[in-house]
Amino acid sequence: MDNSSLFLLIIYCLLACCGIMVLVWFWAHKIKNAGVVDIFWSYNFPVIAIILFLLAPGYHDRKLLICAMVIIAGLRLGTHLATRILKHLDEEEGRYQQLRKEWAPNSEKKFFFFFQFQGISNVLLAIPFFISTLNTSTKISPLEYAGAILWFISVAGEAIADWQLATFKKDAANKGKVCDTGLWNYSRHPNYFFEWLMWFSYFVFALASPYGILAIISPAIILYLLLKVTGIPATEEQSLRSKGEAYKRYQKSTSVFVPWFKKNKFPS
C-alpha cells in the first residue's frame, strides 16, 4: 500500500464530502429541514468512488468493479431517499424534529457539526474502497467475486424492502398503520439488514487485498450505528410516538433486524 497515495486520496475525499455537507447545511438551514442530509450522505459514496477510480493507483478492472458497485448502491439509496424527502420538504422528519428540540437553542450550530461528521463518516466507512482500489494485483480473486455476488443480493433485498414500504404508504387506507407486508412481515427493519449486508459484502471484497482485514471496521461501525445509535433506536422511538399500540404489537410479532420467521408462528 502506497502511504503517500492513500494520504492524498483521503484528503481529496474529505475535502469533497465535507465541502458538499457545508453546502447541504446551508440549504437545510434555509428550508429548516435537516433530513436532506440523508440524501447527500448516500450520494457522497459515489463521489468517493469516482475520486478513487480516477486517482487510485490500483488495477483498473478491480477499480471499475468496486467503484461501479459503490456508485450504483449510493445512487439507488440516495435517489430513493430524495424521492421520499423532497415530496415533503416543508415537513421535517420526526427524528430530526426531535434533535432540533433537544439541541435548542443552538440547534443550527449543532446541525452544522452533525453534517460535517456525516461527511467524515463517509470517508471512514470507505475503508474497503481505499484498500481495494490501491491493490495493483492483476488477478481478480474468488473473494472479490463472492463479495460482488453478496453485494448484488443485498442491494436487491434493500431495494425490494424500500419498494414494499413505499407501496404500502401510497395506499391512503394504510394511513396510520404499520407496514407488515412482504419482508416487513418478518423483520421491522429489513432495509437496515440489507444495508448492513451490503457493507459486509464490501469487507469480503476487500479481503482479497493487502490489509483487507482492516475493512471489517466498516460493517462493524454500520452495525453499531444501526442497532444502537441513529438507525433502529431512533426509528422505533419515532414509530412508537406516531403509531403507539399498533407498533408495540408489531414489535412483539417480528424480528428486530434479520428477516426471519414471525415470532407468532412458533409455539409460545
Rank of each mutant, 00 (worst) to 15 (best):
N135L: 05
V178G: 06
A49G: 06
P142S: 05
T83K: 11
A159Y: 13
L81T: 06
G176E: 04
I217N: 01
L23Y: 11
Y250T: 03
W103T: 02
Y186F: 14
S218F: 05
D2R: 14
F261G: 01
E91Q: 12
A159I: 07
L99F: 15
I213E: 10
G244N: 03
N122G: 10
K101A: 10
L55C: 13
L207D: 05
I140P: 11
A172T: 12
G35Y: 08
Y145F: 14
V256Y: 06
L86F: 13
F117C: 13
E245M: 08
F194Q: 03
V155A: 00
A234C: 02
L124M: 15
P219C: 06
A159W: 09
A73P: 07
L214R: 10
A166N: 08
S218C: 10
K265Y: 13
T79F: 09
K139I: 15
Q238M: 13
R84K: 10
Y192T: 01
P57M: 03
A206V: 05
F45Q: 06
E91I: 12
Q118W: 05
T235E: 09
L64D: 02
M198I: 00
A173D: 12
K177T: 10
T136W: 10
F7W: 14
A34Y: 13
C179Q: 03
I71V: 14
F117T: 15
K87N: 00
H60D: 08
F112A: 05
C18Q: 08
A220F: 12
T136K: 15
L225G: 02
F194E: 03
M21N: 11
A234F: 09
